[in-house]
Structure formats: C-alpha cells, structure tokens
Amino acid sequence: MKKLSNYKLPAYSATVKTEVVCPNDTNPMGLLQGGRLVECMDIAAAVCAQTHADKIGVTASINQVDFNAAANVGDIIAINAVITRAFTTSMEIFVQAFARKVLARKKYLISEAYFTFVALDENGKATPVIAVKPVTALQKKQYTAAISRKNNRISKKI
C-alpha cells in the first residue's frame, strides 16, 4: 500500500478478522453472544488503528453498537475494520461484522459500530497520528461525518 509522509490512505490499515462461532461463544440458544462479538470487533479495530498510527492504540470509546442479526454455532464471522478519520491523537475506526452459514455463499451484516482509539507513545501518553486521506465516495462521506460523531461523543460527556 502507498504510504506517504503526511497522510495514509484508508486501505493501508484496513483489517479483516475471521472467526468461527464455537459453542463457548454462544448463549444457551446457540447464538453468538454480543459481548464476544464486540470483543472481536475491538481487536480488529485495534489492529487497524495501530497499523495506521504505527503506535500502540487503546480503545477510547465505542459509538452505538448495533446488532442487526444473529449468528449461530458454526457460522463464519468476517469483521472488517477501516479508519474513517484521524484527529490529533485519536482515530475513528468503522467496524462491520458479517456472518455466513458454512454451506451458504451469502453473507449478512450482523453488527456495526464506530470505535475511537487513542495512539500512545512509549511512555503511555497520547501522541499525534498521521492524517487519513479518503479516496472513495464512501470514505469521503465517512471522513466528513466523523467530526459530527466526535462532537456528539464529546457533548454527551459534558
């Protein structure tokens, strides 16, 4: 991927994590537990953020996790994480989780959320991150909307 000195493209750090839903990941109904799914989404988001920043990244917030559909034991889960915007020391990562039955060829969205990560230096202090340059129309739309999501998050803390 192309790495430039003053920005990186979203594709540079785009991450895909694949899991199989095992019995220990499910509730008594055989459905994937939401907490287990969020844990996997957080890991994919962390890999994306840390790859973009070339620094350790820690989760600062998770913006409204939506659970759209259930996944069952044996389903294959694909989690896609892509950076939408880098701020001074933080990064917003958009994460989508898809499931598919082993014998089916169609995947379906089970969850999505925006994660915010803060880059840390070797002393554990927040450190600046390189900018993101969106390329596609969707990336540009998410990049522009990221500031509203950030301001919304900040206003809820007050």
Score class of each variant (00 low, 15 high):
residue 55 K to Q: 13
residue 76 I to N: 08
residue 6 N to Y: 06
residue 53 A to P: 03
residue 157 K to V: 11
residue 130 I to P: 01
residue 5 S to K: 05
residue 75 D to F: 09
residue 96 Q to W: 03
residue 128 P to Q: 00
residue 58 V to R: 03
residue 155 S to F: 10
residue 92 E to M: 05
residue 37 L to G: 02
residue 67 F to Y: 06
residue 109 L to Q: 02
residue 53 A to Q: 03
residue 51 T to A: 08
residue 60 A to H: 02
residue 31 L to Q: 14
residue 44 A to K: 04
residue 125 K to E: 14
residue 88 T to N: 07
residue 67 F to P: 03
residue 20 V to C: 14
residue 95 V to I: 03
residue 3 K to W: 14
residue 1 M to K: 13
residue 106 K to A: 09
residue 80 N to E: 10
residue 136 T to H: 11
residue 43 I to L: 12
residue 43 I to C: 06
residue 115 F to Q: 00
residue 24 N to E: 11
residue 16 V to R: 12
residue 55 K to P: 08
residue 103 L to S: 09
residue 79 I to N: 01
residue 81 A to P: 05
residue 65 V to E: 00
residue 37 L to S: 02
residue 69 A to P: 00
residue 18 T to N: 09
residue 35 G to S: 06
residue 141 K to Q: 14
residue 131 A to H: 12
residue 31 L to N: 15
residue 86 A to Y: 01
residue 107 K to V: 03
residue 151 N to D: 12
residue 64 Q to W: 06
residue 9 L to W: 11
residue 60 A to D: 01
residue 30 G to I: 15
residue 48 C to V: 07
residue 131 A to E: 15
residue 157 K to M: 12
residue 38 V to M: 10
residue 27 N to K: 07
residue 76 I to C: 02
residue 139 Q to P: 09
residue 60 A to W: 00
residue 21 V to E: 08
residue 156 K to A: 09
residue 15 T to L: 14
residue 84 T to K: 01
residue 146 A to D: 15
residue 114 Y to I: 10
residue 105 R to H: 06
residue 112 E to M: 11
residue 28 P to E: 07
residue 95 V to M: 04
residue 151 N to C: 08
residue 85 R to I: 11
residue 144 T to P: 08
residue 103 L to P: 01
residue 13 S to W: 00
residue 152 N to P: 06
residue 13 S to T: 04
residue 151 N to R: 08
residue 72 N to I: 11
residue 150 K to H: 07
residue 6 N to I: 10
